[in-house]
Design a protein around this nucleic acid. Sequence first.
RNA 1: GUGGGCGUAGCUCAGUUGGUUAGAGCGCCAGGUUGUGGCCCUGGAGGUCGAGGGUUCGAAUCCCUCCGUUCACCCCA
Length: 468
Amino acid sequence: MTLTTAPRGTYDIMPNQALAWQWLEKNIREVFLLYGYGEIRTPIFEHTELFQRGIGETTDIVEKEMYTFTDKGGRSITLRPEGTASVVRAYIEHKLYGQAPVAKLYYLGPMFRQERPQAGRFRQFHQFGVELIGDESPVADAEVILLAHDLYRRLGLTDLEIHLNSVGCPHCRQEYKRVLTSMLKAAAGELCPTCRVRLDRNPLRLLDCKNAACQGILSRVPPIQNYLCTDCRHHFDQVVALLETVNVKYELSPRLVRGLDYYFRTVFEILNKDLGAQNALCGGGRYDGLVEECGGPAVPGVGFASGIERVLTTLEQRGKLPEFSNSPNLYLIPLGEQLSAVAFSLATTLRRAGYIVELGNGRKSLKSQLKTAHKSGAALAVIIGEDEWQAREVTFKKMDDGSQKRIAVADLATEIVKLVHPSVGTSKMGKGSQERSSVDDLIDTLQKELAMVNHLVVPLTNCTNKEE
RNA sequence: GUGGGCGUAGCUCAGUUGGUUAGAGCGCCAGGUUGUGGCCCUGGAGGUCGAGGGUUCGAAUCCCUCCGUUCACCCCA
């Protein structure tokens, strides 16, 4: 049982699904490139201490969700539950602060959290995200939010909700926490058990509790905005103003606090309400202080992380996922095992010329192979039978209308070029005046390769003839 | 970690108050055409009914335990 099932919360991405992943990843990389971010690939695991320190000891991630083990050297190792800590570690390790005023980094890859899986939540899941380190200005916050927004927009996702809040700096947050704690202590008996615990450990986290009773009590609590210091207030106002200048719609969410300790001032989430309980497409915010906490200089930072699975689900829900196809251009059908060798050589030739070629099984009937060719979605079937090959010909059959004709091997190159465009290596094609010459190039290449096929194939057919 | 739903063919699912060789549709393979796909027709393969235990003359069906899965809580992407 365990041998034939992927571990709980994990899953396989099968070839047809992988096409959507590749498409999405390509779009992500392109947008990040537009905004000037460079990819960083950090290890999948890190020293446990990095996450404990970076994410925060009292967070759920660190307290109960990490995949942690001791390696053979006795070191405590953890599979990364998120990306920011690792990027910050690498930033410090490579002393990027000494190379340029800001570092703009992006990542994309698997993350691991040991939670009970449910809709939109997995134990191995995939995130992409950016970290803009070294810029304390509100423009940086706005850019990061806009980056996420623009990426989704480019993918065709328009009416998503951007939720925005400020959690202040350690100074004003301290003040707010005091007010919050004193107000809630009085009503502690009515709070849910987890909130009662949080009251002492991390009172801000009470704010987004979904328990109805807690919400009732919390509705009487003033929003954190009322307690922001002038600098924090000013910073937040500017972020909001910047979003206005580019006409991005947002909602102010005074209850949004987010579960990671490192957030500072700006926090945001982008939601798709249709996703189910796990409806956040991405989340992020500013984390001034994190680099220093992790042993680097006092450098500010801001970033976000987005879940690939959730983006894909949203795209699918909204019908924005393109149709993907990896149908072959040509399906070669040898009739009989002797001719399989001919088809094999021909397939190699055509693949080298950039065509997607599928090769039928020569032991199977023509009918069976044609069925398979049909199912493969190939545009053209090339039948290589004894009749044809005696005359050094093959039969071309167009799969859409069923029309067919016999083609002399000598004319193969020109005929193929006329009927199908290669799917691979098309970069040389389609550039106006260059098109003509690249078609000729293709024919040349094919002809050279085909000469080789003839050469290889003659002894084989001779063999067949001798046996008869 | 807690709670609810669901586990029958590759997939989607029927299966009556417990009753004999567990079914359908789709898919797959083959044939109908000694060399022609899609449509149609015929046939075939494929199931320890999630696992173990119990009740019973008899269990896919009832009971228990476990496992898996799914949704929700906590929390998050």
